[in-house]
Design a protein around this nucleic acid. Structure first.
Length: 785
DNA sequence: GTCCTAAATTTTTTT
DNA sequence: AATTTAGGAC
């Protein structure tokens, strides 16, 4: 009887909720201005001892207007640093505190889990502990997943469906390409995946794709694969990321009764980062908001940076047409950045066309101009930034308030290398994720298979990990058997072990594997999911496999698995845990509050702020990224420019933009040109900085740009030298044969000091004091007493 | 079926 | 440059 997703579980009582839903304690009947006065006067409007009026005290006029605006469609056009999350959270908290809505009647949607968490915390602190639950606050994906589980049968799934991750998805596309005899050189799986993803972002099932697109994209192969793929997912009872939202929209669209239920349920809909919504997400909102149109969207057209994921900036530009009678409130007072930073960012974004147009202003007067620095190459850039950060650190600046924002992940490496050498503590945000590590995915695959035997992707992953003698041939046989029977691999395997299609050795191996899984499934009902995980990882031999592994990373992997198992205790049951890892991917950061510099991509930085921000790699081809220009033209360029805008506006006090004259990109030296965005920065707010305060070890470089030099001239002069003569550096350390022994202490140019753990010919596995375990060639280290 | 070597491919951004 | 994939030897 207990349905975890019961729509009306949170209000005081199920029956009562119906009535109260229609007549909230203090209602829309009272004009809002009056209501606000009441609230200010003494909090009569408040419920549960919370002082709703106090929430308004620290807001500016526009923010207060946003909180108090009448029901109906409302667009908050909020520039960077204008307190949009604050306004949105307060609007929700205010509605709850004044009794206009129960927490369970508020649908609040964000894009990232991080944003959802932050909003939850903000609302929580506004409301105190009085109202903790906000069951319908989450990301589009997590909320859709909930809706989908509740009505899965309407789209041919069960409530236990698994969620497919991008990795397995791509592997499966490759399989289909092969089995359909499609040339994967001409039509790479990535391309097909991209096309299908775009269709899903627009909400098209295979039979709904416009015919012209269906026949032209990838010569018709895309639609062919999409159709096969979607059918297969259905038989396996699996949904991918795109499906979560697409299926939810189809359910709402095709089942009036279900839609009505949710429409009635959600009295208030609030959406964060509206500029990033794509077509399906728009439909999703549109359907749910239909009727009362009680929807409040917050966004900034200048921060739309997810066009490549299907985001339609038009959604926000069109808002007032979409929702008749919509009201727009602009939040323009910026509380974050200094005037120079704000002016530089505003000047840059002016080059974009088709903006809604906001004028950010601040009453701050302090602050320095943006620093611009040309460097010889990427290594020097990393060194100079490292030096700057050390200087800030010595000046007692908090490292947590310093960040380096890069265009793409590969740019992070040289900074990590440099920071390790310096011993400078740093954290990578959105870097390699815990749940994406191979050992964690293996362990989870065991659990997925037990939970949901039709999860072919899980079975394929672990059927031969550890080695059971079930290699490609056995898997091939199994796959074709499954296809012939039109069922999943697990069921096919159960049949296959009763026939003699497989050789005896393989058949026995398969049989004992299947029996083991069946046994674990039974045990699952009689123990906690944590105990189950321990049992399975032990009995399967998976733990033993890593224990027997002599490679230096094996102990770390075992450590990760241990961490994973212990984290499972935070979840109610196995299903809850699996749902979490599929949707969240990020392990809860148990960051020990230590001071650390943050390193991340510009995309990951959205919504964050720092005192000091470094923006390296502003070179044509890197930023704006070449691919973006090639594939999206002007549209792509404008999105890159918005990304630059996002980067600059993260800073409260200090921005340092830099570029290198020579850049090593995947092994080739490129003679780089400074980014066009540098030219677009207004000169009055930029200071060309040639490291007057930090002596540069590169002597053959021009070092004379003055503060007054216009930006253009400065960069044309400074980093003009190219790479000749540079590539000699590594050949100097000729291979002298030295004997190394286990336990010996050594020094490495990049990783610092460490001791040898394993000697394998001229290869050494070394545990570095700061850099952790690495495999290194003996030529690159020297002995150290 | 497994292991080793050579070649190809990667690097835009994420739920 | 580094990691993944394919092919060939055993």
């Amino acid at each position: 009887m207990s349905d975890p997703f019961d729509l009306d579980s949170t209000p005081p009582s199920d029956e009562g909720a119906e009535v109260k839903d229609d007549a909230p304690p203090l209602g829309e009947a009272v004009p809002l201005s009056q209501q606000a006065q009441q609230a200010r006067a003494g909090g009569e409007a408040s419920v549960g001892g919370i002082d709703a009026a106090a929430m308004l005290d620290d807001l500016n006029d526009a923010q207060r207007e946003a909180v108090l605006a009448e029901d109906g469609a409302l667009l908050l056009l909020a520039g960077a640093g204008t307190g949009k999350t604050r306004a949105l959270s307060t609007r929700i908290a205010y509605k709850i505190a004044t009794g206009q809505a129960y927490p369970s009647q508020v649908l609040a949607v964000t894009f990232t889990n991080k944003a959802a968490l932050e909003m939850r915390q903000r609302i929580g602190s506004l409301l105190g502990s009085a109202v903790e639950e906000m069951p319908w606050l989450g990301t589009f994906h997590s909320l859709s997943s909930r809706i989908l589980r509740r009505h899965a049968e309407l789209v041919g799934l069960t409530d236990k469906f698994s969620i497919l991750n991008a990795d397995d998805q791509l592997r499966y596309f490759k399989q289909i390409l092969k089995s359909e005899n499609i040339d994967d050189k001409r039509y790479p799986a990535r391309l097909i995946a991209g096309i299908i993803d775009r269709w899903k972002n627009r909400g098209y099932y295979p039979d709904e794709v416009p015919t012209s697109e269906a026949s032209h994209f990838a010569n018709g192969h895309a639609i062919q694969i999409y159709s096969i793929y979607q059918n297969r997912l259905k038989t396996l009872d699996i949904a991918d990321f795109g499906d979560l939202i697409m299926h939810a929209v189809h359910i709402l669209r095709d089942h009036k009764d279900v839609l009505a239920e949710y429409q009635k349920k959600f009295k208030h809909i609030l959406v964060d980062e509206y500029q990033d919504t794509n077509v399906v997400q728009y439909l999703w909102l549109r359907l749910l908001a239909l009727g009362h149109s009680n929807i409040c969207c917050v966004g900034d057209d200048d921060q739309s940076i997810y066009g490549w994921r299907g985001a339609e900036i038009e959604n926000i530009l069109r808002f007032e047409k979409d929702f008749a009678g919509a009201k727009t409130i602009k939040l323009e007072q910026n509380y974050r950045s200094s005037p120079h930073i704000l002016a530089a960012a505003s000047g840059l974004i002016k080059s974009n066309e088709g903006r809604l147009g906001k004028t950010l202003w601040t009453d701050r007067k302090d602050g320095e101009k943006i620093f611009l620095r040309g460097c010889y190459d990427g290594e020097e850039e990393a060194r100079l930034i490292g030096d700057d950060i050390e200087a800030h650190h010595r000046a007692k600046r908090d490292l947590n308030e310093i960040s380096i924002l890069v265009r793409a992940g590969f740019q992070m490496r040289e900074f990590e290398d440099r920071f390790i050498t310096l011993g400078l503590p740093y954290r990578v945000i959105g870097g390699p994720r815990f749940y994406e590590r191979a050992e964690i995915r293996d362990a989870n695959a065991y659990l997925r298979l037990i939970q949901h035997p039709s999860d072919d992707f899980a079975l394929e992953r672990i059927i031969n990990r550890p080695r059971r003698g079930l290699g490609n041939v056995a898997l091939q046989t199994l796959t074709s058997a499954a296809r012939a029977m039109e069922t999943n691999l697990f069921q096919a395997a159960q049949t296959l072990i009763t026939t003699d299609e497989l050789k005896p050795a393989a058949r026995n191996a398969l049989q004992s594997f299947i029996r083991a899984v069946e046994r674990w499934q039974q045990r699952a009902t009689e123990m906690t999911h944590t105990e189950l995980a321990e049992l399975v990882l032990d009995e399967s031999g998976y733990i033993a496999m890593w224990q027997a592994d002599k490679s230096p990373e094996a102990p770390g992997k075992l450590e990760n698995i241990k961490e994973m198992v212990s984290s499972m205790g935070d979840f109610e049951n196995l299903a809850g845990y699996l749902e979490h890892i599929a949707l969240v991917m990020e392990a809860q950061s148990n960051d020990s509050g230590d001071e650390k510099v943050s390193l991340m991509t510009l995309h990951a930085a959205k919504g964050l702020e720092f005192d000091i921000v470094f923006l390296p790699g502003w070179e044509e081809g890197v930023f704006p990224h070449q691919r973006s220009l090639d594939e999206e033209g002007t549209r792509g360029l404008e999105e890159e420019r918005r990304l630059a805008y996002v980067g600059i506006t993260r800073a409260k006090q200090l921005v340092t933009i830099s570029f290198a004259g020579n850049r090593n990109l995947h092994g080739r030296w490129i003679n780089a040109t400074p980014s066009r965005f540098i030219d677009e920065l207004p000169c009055d707010h930029v200071q060309v900085n040639d490291d007057a305060h930090i002596p540069s070890p590169i002597t053959h470089r021009a070092t004379s740009a003055t503060h007054a030099t216009p930006i253009k001239e400065a960069w044309q002069r400074s980093p003009a030298q190219t790479i000749e003569g540079k590539a000699v550096s590594s050949s100097a350390s000729a291979a002298q044969s030295v004997d190394y022994k286990r336990g010996e202490r050594v020094f490495h140019q990049k990783f610092g000091y460490g001791h040898i753990e394993v000697v394998d010919g001229n290869k050494l596995a070394i545990a570095f004091d700061k850099a952790g375990r690495k495999k290194v060639l003996a030529d690159y280290v020297e002995k150290h007493g």
